[in-house]
Amino acid sequence: MNRLRKQLCAAVVASLAGGKVVPPEAGRDLWNAFQRLSRSRTYSMQGPNPIQPSEILAWCRLMRQPLGPHHVEIILAMDEAWLGRAYASSKAPEGVKTLPPVSKHPISAALLDAVMG
């Protein structure tokens, strides 16, 4: 399964780079499941959110397609590869100043009130 995971993650990265992707035959069902789950991905102000295991469970029930724990781990690894590429491409060009994505200040009631009003 480790080899299949590596092959599918490489296919995800290749597809995001615009290359022609032919996922391994043994992982075609996982590839299709990841593609469908990724279409329902949520986004926040920081960018795309990871696929939650609860989303995978709901999809399995809806499609009546059982997935074992090792299959879910592969889909989550594919999602990590997808997110890594998505966040890597959102970095600013060299020499452009940007704000850090995470605040250095802990959240407090006063800060929450200031942001939310």
Rank of each mutant, 00 (worst) to 15 (best):
K6R: 15
Q52R: 11
I107E: 15
A92C: 09
M63L: 08
S90E: 13
S108Y: 13
R3E: 12
G18L: 08
I107H: 11
P93M: 08
P48Q: 02
Q7Y: 03
K20P: 02
M63W: 01
L30P: 01
I75A: 02
G27W: 04
V21D: 06
R41I: 00
R39Q: 14
K91Q: 10
C60H: 11
K6M: 11
P66G: 05
R85Q: 09
G47H: 03
Q35P: 00
S40K: 04
D79M: 02
A33T: 07
P101L: 14
G27Y: 10
P24M: 09
Q35M: 07
V115N: 09
Q52E: 13
R61N: 14
A11V: 10
L8Y: 02
R41E: 03
Q46D: 02
K104P: 15
S15N: 08
E73L: 10
G117L: 13
D29Q: 07
S15D: 11
K6W: 14
P23A: 06
V12I: 12
Q46S: 10
I74E: 04
G84W: 11
K20E: 15
Q7S: 12
P106G: 09
P24Q: 09
L62A: 15
P50D: 01
R39P: 00
G27V: 05
P24T: 04
A110K: 15
H71V: 01
Q7I: 02
D29K: 03
R64A: 07
I51M: 02
A114Y: 05
L112A: 12
D79Q: 03
F34N: 05
A11S: 15
P100D: 10
Q46T: 07
R39W: 03
K97N: 09
M78V: 06
P23V: 04
S54Q: 05
W31F: 08
I74W: 08
L57C: 04
E55F: 02
A88W: 13
P53H: 09
V96N: 04
L8A: 11
H70L: 13
E94L: 11
E80L: 01
R85A: 09
M45V: 04
V72Q: 10
G19V: 01
W31S: 06
P24V: 13
P53V: 06
M45Y: 04
P101C: 14
I74S: 08
C60E: 15
G95F: 07
Y87K: 09
V102S: 13
V102L: 15
A58Y: 01
G18C: 12
R28A: 09
G117P: 03
A86F: 08
A109W: 13
R41P: 00
D29C: 02
K20S: 06
P50M: 00
A92V: 04
R28T: 00
A109N: 12
L4H: 07
M116L: 14
H105Y: 11
M1K: 05
A33P: 04
H105M: 11
A11G: 05
R5E: 15
M1S: 09
R85W: 13
I74N: 08
V12A: 05
P69G: 12
H71P: 00
W82N: 06
A86V: 02
L37H: 05
E73H: 10
M1Q: 11
D113P: 00
L83K: 07
A10W: 04
A110Q: 14
I75C: 05
I74R: 07
P53K: 04
G47I: 04
I74M: 11
L57Q: 15
L76R: 07
S108G: 15
P93R: 12
I56S: 01
W59H: 06
R3Y: 07
G19T: 03
